[in-house]
Design a protein around this nucleic acid. Structure first.
Lengths: 212, 212
DNA sequence: AAAAAACTCAGGGAAAACCCTGAGTTTTTT
DNA sequence: AAAAAACTCAGGGTTTTCCCTGAGTTTTTT
């Protein structure tokens, strides 16, 4: 018997998944949540085998929640559920404890396949996401932890950002154009899967990317 | 004999201090630097008793340098040297290992007084700065580490910022106006002595301010 | 009850960050 | 030498952040 919890604030998605799994004898949806708070609360009482976790929640972000839960419940397998396939997000959530990543247009078969794989310790990604990931980080160990490879310049810019310098100031320091600094920053945000400079620094600290 | 190092990129300031101390028999300026890099380099070879450290340097910020040095050389006393007296900056640098804070218009007498105090383990602040500090953080242990007291709302906003939400999104989440969120952010930046949201998050992580 | 602190919000402006597209140059790898 | 990766920069636009002043309301402290 595989027990499933779902966290998603869209009732439709929730229903859809439940229906999909309805007549699978050995799979049972035992918990349903629609927010970060209720998920934390509910899981503290009982842990399912697998959590299907939407990344976009009203009261917080799923990535942080994923991280928290994976630390708290190491045996819990988390599969991220998202409606978009930005490589950045995928990287980040995989890096924060998720065992899989599914788009919301997934099929019943795929869902069950994913369950099996993550339960045996594997990592499940949808085909195209898998491809994108491979493309975006060639020659890198694609284990659990994506340590993005930053170029020399990117690292310099990242460090400067972390020191609270503005784009203008960074440009002066590095003797390059403002536009170039902006480009580097954009690439950093994309590579690290952040939404803005704040996220950039959070990830950089997390991964110890600020050392020289 | 008290040995002094000075790090300042303004030749004038450097000269001024040196002259001030010229005919003080028991005080000697033994090292002079004008950048973060050269300071790190020089101190690795020999440590003076006291480092007079300008906070605004061309190749990095003095606060981070101060932190680094105070960790590396616990016996080294660092006195921050700055041309402005923003309370925010003072707090932050004191929180990062400095034993004193002087404005650049300091007098010879004050300078020497500061030396004595920090060498005996004390903390030296200029009168008005001392007052401002007291004012800005009443009822708080004014020991070495300023753990700023944040209000409930400020903490909520801080956490939301750290989750990479925009002001607009935070306003929605907390059901308050954008303007209110902005006010909270400004107060946070001021209280924590950051220059922007990136600094805010750095300090918050440093001080573990993001817990509930 | 009075004072202080916290919370709320607005106007309005300047600066910075974010985002995209496109493209030439230099350096490194194959 | 050819290909790939990194670095550079521009135009041009939108959004967000930053900053200031001022001020009314609610909550907490004294």
């Amino acid at each position: 018997m595989i027990t499933i919890a779902i966290t998603d604030d869209h009732e439709l998605v929730m229903q859809g998944i439940e229906n999909m799994l309805h007549n699978e004898g050995d799979i049972r949806v035992v918990q349903k949540y629609n927010s970060v708070a209720s998920t934390i609360d509910g899981l503290s009482k009982e842990q399912p085998n697998i959590l299907l976790l939407d990344i976009n929640l009203p009261d917080g972000n799923g990535i942080d929640l994923c991280k928290k839960l994976s630390v708290e419940y190491p045996k819990l397998k988390i599969i991220a559920l998202s409606s978009y396939s930005e490589i950045a997000f995928v990287k980040r959530i995989l890096n924060n404890g998720a065992s899989g990543y599914l788009l919301k247009n997934t099929s019943k078969e795929e869902l069950i396949e994913a369950f099996k794989i993550v339960l045996t310790g594997g990592q499940y990604l949808q085909r195209d996401i898998q491809n994108k990931l491979l493309q975006s980080s060639l020659g890198q160990k694609k284990s659990t932890s994506f340590i993005p490879k930053l170029t020399r310049r990117e690292k310099e810019v990242l460090i400067a950002i972390s020191e609270e310098f503005t784009t203008q100031e960074i440009a002066n320091k590095l003797c390059i154009s403002i536009k170039t600094v902006e480009t580097h920053r954009m690439n950093l945000i994309s590579k690290l899967g952040a939404r803005n400079s704040v996220g950039l620094i959070k990830i950089a600290l997390e991964k110890d990317l600020l050392k020289n």
